[in-house]
């Protein structure tokens, strides 16, 4: 067994030829790739809808090209910079806070030696993931409601003047970050936890025997093992930085107009436009815009990651 471990650590990447096995591997990928091609690539020609004045009578191909007209309603809008800023900054905040807390939570699970305690804590952390945003919105409301809200009652008990949460934008980046993190941290940490399980416990024990402190172990053994995963997940999340979680921004804020200056994001803006105009081409074009931005950001991040350590890059 020890042999194996040693081998693993000293192994260099052998660049041998695959020979026959190449076809076995291609064969293995064939069926899943078929699904990707059928269900993702065939419909992709629909992207052109975003550049057309789509009339059902003429079909997708037959409709007239209108260039960038479908993008105008958003890009030319006075609100464009505001919603772009909100979307990107809040998403960045979510990613950073999300990753840090997920790793910390995973480490805590890992350190908890008692299995029952681990199970209990994991369940507590993961439960939020099961709740839909609608339910989460009710829970947030139970805390923040101006009249009956728990937080205002507590503030009142301490003699602090109550805050009308749903009309004060300045608190919302914080509230949204907490809510979002609370909802996703458990599930994200499961991934990191699974990665930690894969770490060879002998390495860890050896370090402990050598008298390395907890922090040192975390820094030198555990974190390096998590880095590839953190890198991949972050790159993937960056790809969606221009997309906002509609449920979070619409339900949890209760679509409160007074908060729009910080809570209005691309997806809620689009939703509002669609409810008044009902023009589908708009959603296709906005989706395309979001994809392009995500694509560029991912390519950049991936390039940088590749420079640092090609193993951690996405492609």
């Amino acid at each position: 067994m020890k042999e194996v471990i040693k081998q693993r650590k000293v192994s260099t990447k052998s660049k041998g030829t695959l020979g026959n096995r190449k076809w076995q591997l291609y064969g293995m990928m064939a069926i899943p790739l078929l699904f990707v091609i059928v269900f993702s690539y065939i419909p992709m020609f629909g992207i052109i809808i975003g550049f057309k004045d789509y009339k059902y009578s003429r079909g997708i191909l037959g409709s007239e090209w209108v260039g960038l007209k479908n993008f105008e309603f958003m890009v030319k809008s006075n609100d464009f910079w505001n919603i772009t800023r909100n979307t990107i900054l809040l998403n960045l905040l979510f990613i950073v806070v999300g990753v840090i807390s997920a790793v910390v939570v995973a480490l805590i699970f890992y350190e908890l030696k008692s299995r029952i305690a681990t199970k209990v804590y994991q369940t507590i952390f993961i439960t939020p993931h099961f709740l839909s945003w609608v339910v989460v919105a009710y829970m947030v409301y139970a805390l923040l409601s101006p009249e009956y809200g728990t937080i205002n009652k507590i503030l009142g008990a301490f003699g602090i003047s109550q805050i009308n949460w749903y009309s004060e934008p300045k608190w919302w980046p914080l509230i949204l970050t907490i809510t979002n993190t609370w909802k996703i941290v458990g599930m994200d940490s499961v991934i990191y936890y699974a990665a930690l399980m894969g770490i060879d416990s002998t390495l860890y024990e050896a370090a402990e025997v050598d008298g390395a402190g907890k922090l040192k172990i975390v820094k030198n053994i555990i974190l390096p093992c998590l880095v590839p995963l953190i890198a991949i997940l972050t790159i993937l999340k960056i790809g969606n930085i221009f997309r906002a979680d509609f449920g979070l921004f619409y339900q949890v804020t209760r679509d409160s107009g007074a908060l729009y200056s910080v809570t209005d994001v691309i997806d809620t803006y689009l939703y509002r436009t669609l409810t008044v105009t009902g023009d589908m081409s708009l959603s296709t074009s906005v989706g395309f815009l979001q994809s392009i931005v995500g694509m560029v950001l991912v390519l950049i991040t991936n390039y940088i990651t590749r420079k640092i350590n090609p193993d951690n890059a996405l492609f």
Partner: peptide, 22 residues
């Protein structure tokens, strides 16, 4: 035919919703 004023409609709708509840 509102195709010429979509941008303004979405901007104004936002403002209206921001204030209608207030």
């Amino acid at each position: 035919d509102d195709s010429m004023i979509t941008t303004e409609i979405s901007q104004c709708t936002k403002v209206r919703q921001e204030y209608s509840k207030r």
